[in-house]
Structures are given as C-alpha cells and as structure tokens.
C-alpha cells in the first residue's frame, strides 16, 4: 500500500536520520505534532482544569465508586475481546467479576471481586485483539481530542463502539443523554487519575511529543502481550556490552512484516519491498 501526499515528510537519505525515522514510525510527524499542540491547548484550558475540579468537588470514595461502575459497565466489552483473543482464563475472570460486582457490588459501584475475592481487573479492547491476531500497528497518528493512536487502534476504537453491549443497550433503551454522560464521566475519570503522571512526563522530558509517542507504543505493546516479557520492538535492549549494536533495523516481534505506508513521491515507488 502506498499513499502519496505532498503534506507528508519523505524518509531522509542520511542513514542515521533514516534509522531514527524508521524507529519513530511516524511519517505524518509534522501534522501529528500540530494536532498534538491543539490537543495540548484544549487539555490545559479545559480538560485538565475540569478534571482537577472533579477531583476537588467529589470525595475520593464517590470517585472510586464511579470508577468501579464505569469499569463494570465496560466488562461485557472486555469479555468479548478476551474471548476473541482466545484468553479463556481471563474471560472467566472478567465474567466472574461482572457477575459478582453487578450483584454483590451493588451495580458495580463496589469492586467486590477484587476487594473480597481478589479477582483483579484487566482491560482489553479491539485494538489489542487485532494486535493478538497479528495485525501491525501501522504508523503513529495523533487523533483530535482522543490523542495518540495508530490505524490498528483507531479501527479497534470504532469496532468497540459498535460491539460494546452496554453502549448499545444505553443507546437503544436508555435515556438520550446516557451515552454522552458515560463518555464524559469516562473522560473525567481517566484524566483526573492521570494529572500527576502526565505532568511528570512533561516536566521530565525535553521533547514531550516524542516521549509520549514512545510511551504510547510501548504501553500498547505491553497491553497486547498482557504484560508478558518480550524483546523490545525495533529497539535494541540496553546492555553494558560495548560491542552491542546501537542500530537495529526495526523488526516488529512475532508479526508479519510492516506494511509501511511509505509516503514517497511517485517516482520513488518500487515494487521491491526491500527498497
């Protein structure tokens, strides 16, 4: 697949710069950085302050109860993705959690399953399912408002919206405002729990955009593996061996070769994928 666009950067010719370009896997970087700036402005002006007020206005007990209820309402979607990934043990955990918390946990407001039984929450989404099925992430994209993503995770997000049982139930049987209220609460919950973490990343990094890009990719990779160890994708592991290579050609672990969207001018297009 070859996309041609004048707005997009062409791969650099210098080998070092080219290797850095491949490692970043971000051919739309200029445009993405622009969206990132817009998102950042919105966040600082609106989302972060509102998340701060949310945290001040509501006592922790209530915020935790809302957090639990939102997670519980997400459980059927997580269960579907557990099953699609063939993770039967984890599907069992999710189903048991949903049953326990919806009843003994009073509609999900209390995380009875974790607090009493010790069944811990885990998240899944269709982007991860696609990853487990062997789909490549593609390349990095910055979505307006939503933030870091890639084609695989964007497709996942859309599919999740169509298959989420609680979302569908709310849309067809609930009051008109219910889906919107759920989205707003989810955003408030997420942002209010990450104020310090994101501030810290911004404070400690030099290039906030590039750091977030790396953290997003690493985090998604870890989520897809459900935390199991793996070689780091495309990046050599750090070692004290002075002879170890500093450059490793990006070779994503255990997946098909990257169908890279080479945003090259038409005359550079070659049928040979190695070029």
């Amino acid at each position: 697949m070859v996309l041609t666009s004048a707005a997009c950067s062409t791969p650099p010719t210098d080998p070092d710069a080219r290797a850095a370009y491949d490692e970043a896997n971000d051919p739309w970087e200029d445009f993405n950085r622009y969206i990132f700036e817009v998102n950042y402005a919105f966040d600082q002006l609106l989302f972060r302050p509102v998340a701060g007020w949310y945290r001040l206005a509501l006592p922790e007990v209530l915020r935790d109860a809302i957090h639990n209820a939102l997670r519980n309402a997400r459980s059927p979607l997580i269960l579907i993705n557990d099953l699609l990934q063939g993770e039967l043990d984890r599907a069992g955990d999710t189903a048991a959690r949903f049953a326990l918390n919806s009843t003994l946990g009073i509609g999900g407001f209390i995380d009875f399953a974790e607090d009493v039984v010790g069944l811990k929450f885990h998240d899944e989404d269709f982007g991860q399912t696609l990853g487990v099925w062997g789909f490549q992430e593609g390349w990095y994209i910055m979505l307006p408002i939503i933030g870091p993503s890639n084609p695989r995770d964007t497709v996942g997000l859309v599919v999740d919206g169509f298959i989420d049982p609680v979302g569908l139930a709310l849309r067809f049987y609930g009051p008109d405002w219910a889906p919107f209220a759920r989205t707003v609460l989810t955003a408030l919950d997420l942002r209010s729990r990450n104020i310090e973490t994101l501030d810290e990343v911004e404070r400690t990094s030099i290039d906030f955009y590039a750091t977030v890009r790396s953290l997003y990719r690493q985090r998604r990779d870890d989520e897809i593996r459900n935390g199991a160890p793996s070689a780091n994708q495309g990046v050599p592991s750090i070692t004290s061996d002075p002879n170890a290579p500093l450059i490793i050609v990006p070779q994503r672990q255990g997946m098909a070769p990257l169908p890279a969207p080479r945003l090259a001018p038409a005359e550079q297009i070659s049928l040979n994928p190695d070029e």
Binding site: A24, I206, D207, A210, T211, R213, S214, Q218, I238
Partner: peptide
C-alpha cells in the same frame, strides 16, 4: 527507550 526516543527527536 522512552528517553532514547526523546533525545533522538531533539
């Protein structure tokens, strides 16, 4: 790895 991505961008 995150720091390497940061510095490489700089």
């Amino acid at each position: 790895i995150a720091q390497r991505a940061d510095y490489s961008a700089v």
